[in-house]
Amino acid sequence: MTRESRTNLSSPWFQIMLALADGQRHGYGIMQEVEERSSEGFKLWPATLYGAIKRMVAAGLIEPASSAEGDDRRRRYYQLTEMGRVQLAAEARRLDDLIAVARSKHVLPASRGA
């Protein structure tokens, strides 16, 4: 697989990895985090979420956490793998580059709050 295709993470994958960027979460925790943070009402529903989790575990981007640091023992917690972290950063950079282009072409205002 080329670097190009690896970094083109589909939106649910990117959202899940973002949710896991600051620590382990269980499935419902990921759903909550994504819903609270996305202003445009992007929601992850359980079947899609777990379908993505299964594939992301198989792809080596995330893994079940070895020791749960959360409070709920009934659930499995997930965390980013090293490769997942690299891929997430690469995707974020790719998006950042695109945003920079959009700014330079005045699609977006020159800067936002910075």
């Binding site: 499935g27 777990y50 299964k54």
Partner: peptide
């Protein structure tokens, strides 16, 4: 086996939602 190992978690997450 599409959801095998995840059934309980998926249902729980949906019910909790």
């Amino acid at each position: 086996s599409a959801y095998s190992g995840f059934e309980g978690e998926i249902v729980d997450a949906f019910l909790q939602k």
